[in-house]
Amino acid sequence: MLGFMDFVQNAFNAASHWNRDNSYGALNATAQALLDFETPKGLRFHISSLAAPNFATSYTVGTVGVVDGSISYLYSSLPLRTSAKSCDIDLHRVIKGYRQLQELRRPDEDWWWELWHGGKRIDRRDTLLYGRIYLPSSTLEALYLRRLSPTKQLRISCVSDSSVKNGGTILALLQNDVGKYSTEYMYSTDSALLGFRGLYNFGLDPRKAVTSPGTAQDFAEPVHGRFSAGAELYYGILNKSGGISAGLRFTTLPQHTGFPYTMTLTLNPLMGNLTSTYAVKAGQNLALCSRFDFNFYSYESDLQVGCELWRRSRNAEIEWAVKKLRPDWNDVALRPDEDVSGVLKARVDRNWKIGVLWEGRIKELLFTLGASLDLKRREQIFKAVGIELQYSSS
């Protein structure tokens, strides 16, 4: 389940019209959400608040061997008009699951962002500041996020920790997204790493669509799927080593009348790794995913399969069935989350390592209950068991 601060950052991206899915780094987001979920360890409790539209706080206490925790603060120059109460938050916004990508949005025009008063331009670029300190280790992490233009964003993140080489590291990302394609330029103080990655979407160019502020794209014919291709290249100046990867993705869009699905293929030629994934939303409440890894240098391979099963009330299931039979009733709908109480996730690989997770809401608390098992270790099958509780207010 997303932490509260990640939820607020997603709200900032939505309010500033930034598409976090249109990047090479998010190429495998669907498979990662279904297969790479973390199972909690021990007991952890989060108390958070969006005290004002521009300010959020979060406190965490955990018991994993010793009592530890963290304190977080976040400031956004852009007011975030979103419900932050744990009893009201749409579970689909905080639980990582099947990612249904939307149609590409035409970027805002530069002049849409201009504010004038008395003949002088007074607008400022939206900025987000975030800091978190871990106790008792005193590790500090921070984030500076600034929208430079409707298509550009600067992201600087840093970590200060005595256990890290040179006492910490800084990563800077300059992101550019015009809809049709996106690019990212990165620099990290760790080994003076320089990198570039990009993603290109085949098909219609959203910049040529007839739109106006706040309206949807107006294409002559609906688009049912999108094919994307991307690559990544990086090089460490100090250690004189680099890497490269490339990937393909095809995903269905909301106009697709069948089951939504996503397929990806990624290749790292230097390491010899080839990875393919297939995820399908097999019903209103069920999503399935598989991932196959193969190394053509060592001939080693791995297979993972996983699923998520949402729990809904009978009323929600009846409503979904009626919509399938009567599409003209789509406007008569309940809240997206009104009858969702939680989701069960499970994964297993060929070595019989299993992860199980149950996420949901009990009254005003969000919870995550999970366990990791290794069926080949008869003497200690359970590797980790834990529960996380979240409470937030606004």
Results as ranks from 00 to 15, higher is better:
Asp6Ala: 14
Gln9His: 06
Phe12Met: 08
His17Pro: 02
Trp18Met: 05
Ala33His: 15
Leu43Pro: 02
His46Leu: 07
Leu50His: 13
Ala52Cys: 06
Thr57Glu: 03
Tyr75Val: 04
Ser76Lys: 03
Leu104Trp: 00
Pro107Val: 11
Trp113Met: 10
Leu115Cys: 09
Trp116Asn: 09
Gly119Pro: 00
Lys120Phe: 06
Arg121Trp: 06
Arg132Pro: 01
Ser138Ala: 13
Arg146Asn: 12
Ser149Tyr: 03
Ser149Phe: 04
Pro150Tyr: 01
Gln153Pro: 00
Leu174Tyr: 14
Asn176Lys: 09
Tyr185Asn: 09
Leu194Val: 15
Val210Arg: 15
Glu221Met: 06
Pro222Tyr: 04
Gly230Lys: 01
Leu233Trp: 13
Ser241Ala: 12
Gly247Asn: 01
Pro254Arg: 03
Gln255Cys: 04
Phe259Leu: 10
Ala282His: 07
Gln284Pro: 06
Gln284Gly: 09
Gln284Ala: 12
Leu288Phe: 10
Arg291Cys: 12
Phe294Glu: 08
Ser298Ile: 11
Glu300Met: 12
Gln304Ile: 07
Gly306Met: 04
Arg311Trp: 11
Ala316Asn: 05
Ile318Leu: 13
Ile318Thr: 11
Val322Ser: 12
Pro327Leu: 04
Glu338Val: 04
Asp339Pro: 03
Ser341Met: 06
Val343Arg: 01
Asp349Asn: 15
Trp358Pro: 01
Arg361Gln: 14
Leu365Asn: 06
Ala384Ile: 02
Glu388Gln: 12
